[in-house]
Design a protein around this nucleic acid. Sequence first.
DNA 1: TGTCTTCTTCTATGCTTTTTCAAATGCATC
DNA 2: GATGCATTTGAAAAAGCATAGAAGAAGACA
Lengths: 215, 215
Amino acid sequence: MAVLIADDEPQMVKILSAYFKKEGFNVLTANDGQEALDIFESTKIELAILDWMMPKIDGIEVCKYIKDNSQTKVLILTAKGQTEDEIKALHSGADDYIKKPFDPQILLLRAKKLMNNSEEIKVRDIRIMEHEKKAYKHEELLQLTKIEYDLLLFFSRNKGVILSRDRLVDSVWGMDYDGDPRTVDTHIRRLRTKIGTDIIKTYRGVGYCLEVKED
Amino acid sequence: MAVLIADDEPQMVKILSAYFKKEGFNVLTANDGQEALDIFESTKIELAILDWMMPKIDGIEVCKYIKDNSQTKVLILTAKGQTEDEIKALHSGADDYIKKPFDPQILLLRAKKLMNNSEEIKVRDIRIMEHEKKAYKHEELLQLTKIEYDLLLFFSRNKGVILSRDRLVDSVWGMDYDGDPRTVDTHIRRLRTKIGTDIIKTYRGVGYCLEVKED
DNA sequence: TGTCTTCTTCTATGCTTTTTCAAATGCATC
DNA sequence: GATGCATTTGAAAAAGCATAGAAGAAGACA
């Protein structure tokens, strides 16, 4: 769960970062609009908190770009207080708008509200976006078949647990499947070529395991 | 699309009613919390706008009840301005919170956002104007049939998400449709000839997805 | 009401991708 | 180094999709 905080006031970035980090979020920061866009392009961002007035590219423009190109939630932060500005912000696609000065706790609450519908699982450099039904490696979409995706999802829901072929068959193929359990091997192999060979480890005679740490 | 407006100030109810009716919403009004609950129980409400301070049952309690028993969106209206109150409102499950006095236009915008009625959605070179019920490609009007339009709208509300046939059928045709889910294929095909073949991608065995980026 | 047009649904066919299985090869463990 | 299990490979089988077209339904218009 990465949160992008973009503001040209270092003090503001510092305070907000602290709040979000404390809550367990992965925080990325930018000091101007250009930087914010660069980060957005290279990382999968869950929520972007953008100051309206920023050097190079302003928050509204950054917001528009993000909204046109993703499902990322956007919260605009501003010192302005005019009705018109708020309308402009909401029209740019922003999901919420908060006027400075504000209570960081409120911001945190509103931010959480915006994020609570996007589940994701992260393991090593693999990220599974469950609501998208897609998986990424290093922000790059993995071209997985249905079975490969289901396998990976099951593994990542059981990180660090050794899973027998039977268990994998039961949950990925279904209880009523009566094929050869060794078919699993083939799919594991193809999954490995796509996500990296060292991520799923073989436990001879027992099963397979998605290792949380490399060794 | 029914909107419930509950406030003990008749003037406020009157003004808000006028605004929402003008936008084509079906408006129901209540003067206290008990009335609001009665209406909620007897009608299908999409959004409830509740004043915090109301006779009989206050807005927060009404909000909790609504949130425990439905998917209805709730927007709390209040004269209070304390941080604590705002936190309390958001914790009661409210989707948004606006302090009085406020500009009715802002309330309308925020309300629309909660109801998922954004004015326009952009994806790649496609633009959908929801209030016009029209879609454009490169500023050129697309001649879409109703189903094609509804499909495209649903896809664009879920850009980047893989949508199964069942999900598409449920939201475009309705839950009670009992036709062949493969009918979707035909409509996707015709939609593709109109908006461009590479925009909706097939995920074999999973579904279809409106891709945000070309690859 | 009847005719015409447009939109929707469904079926059939061929094609592509995915899945499965079997046989050969490779590797760890005793 | 023998044994049993895992990996690799390839080819057949199965599954899923695109396309086209016909039949059916809905709506427009006289």
